[in-house]
């Protein structure tokens, strides 16, 4: 495959074996975990280790973007959804589609074979010149990526971004809810609360006194009349407030007058 002697120093070997083992362990953990959140964490581990491997292979931009985009944004959104929806219990392992496992196995092996064949074939025709030389062609790793994205792969790049934007728009349309009326802002609600008919503070409690302890009993004002505002609105609006017992009123008045003497 290559006739260039690739000098691999010890540091690189150590990084490779540590990160490769962790990445594979993360992938296995992702598949084998029963809890969805644990699966998400395992795959985050895999992604971070892949990023370290990218950096070790002189692709620092790719490595950092891998962490920012995949670990930081995509996996975080996954976690977010898992936490909101609360997919906590272990998934049921019953096959809902007949022959799914066999099909998955065949397709998985097929994909692996295809990748190995494709990459091996592609690499067979190219000769490696070494990472430093590859990066140096455009004056650096970042410049090299920029050069490729904005010249050779411009169409693919723009198409991908169009696809992503379309998907984002679709998600927004699906999640959109039409409001019938404008949502009252904090300001409007505050003004309404302090207007003439509004009541800025807590409403007075219903007349829960000696003989009654039901909320439909209106509070009594000092002059013996009732305060309808003290009855909860649903009861009030049904005109279901309890009629006042005048014996109570008289009794209260007697007591208060007796005390005041």
């Amino acid at each position: 495959m290559t006739d260039v002697a690739i000098d691999v120093n010890t540091g690189e070997v150590v990084v490779f074996w540590v990160c490769a083992i962790l990445a594979v362990a993360g992938a296995l953990g992702m598949v084998l975990s029963r809890k969805a959140v644990h699966s998400a964490l395992w795959i985050a581990l895999t992604m971070i280790n892949l990023a370290v491997l990218y950096v070790a292979n002189s692709a620092p931009f790719l490595g950092m973007v891998q962490i920012i985009v995949y670990t930081g944004a995509v996996m975080m959104l996954f976690l977010f959804v898992l936490m909101v929806v609360g997919v906590d219990s272990s998934d049921s392992l019953i096959e809902t589609i007949k022959g799914q496992r066999a099909a998955a196995l065949v397709l998985g092996i097929g994909l692996a074979a295809l990748l190995v064949w494709g990459i091996g074939n592609g690499l067979a025709e190219t000769s490696a010149i070494g990472l430093d030389e590859a990066n140096a062609q455009d004056g650096g790793n970042v410049q090299g990526i920029a050069n490729l994205i904005f010249t050779k792969y411009l169409l693919a790049f723009e198409l991908t971004s169009a696809l992503l934007i379309t998907a984002a728009m679709g998600a927004m349309v699906l999640a959109h809810r039409e409001r019938w009326t404008e949502r009252p802002s904090q300001r409007i609600r505050s003004i309404a609360r302090f207007q003439r008919d509004g009541h800025p503070g807590n409403l007075p409690n219903p007349g829960v006194y000696a003989r009654h302890n039901a909320v439909d009993t209106p509070a009594l004002l000092p002059d013996g009349s009732t305060l309808d505002l003290s009855v909860p609105a649903p009861v009030r609006s049904r005109a279901d407030a309890r009629p006042i017992d005048h014996a109570d009123v008289d009794e209260v008045r007697e007591i208060t007058e007796g005390k005041s003497e």
């Binding site: 620092p60 931009f61 930081g72």
Partner: peptide, 18 residues
């Protein structure tokens, strides 16, 4: 320091959120 070190800070911050 390396060519994308500011992105490195962003990346580490996004791991910290975890």
């Amino acid at each position: 320091d390396f060519p994308v070190s500011v992105l490195y800070v962003l990346a580490i911050a996004s791991i910290g959120i975890y």
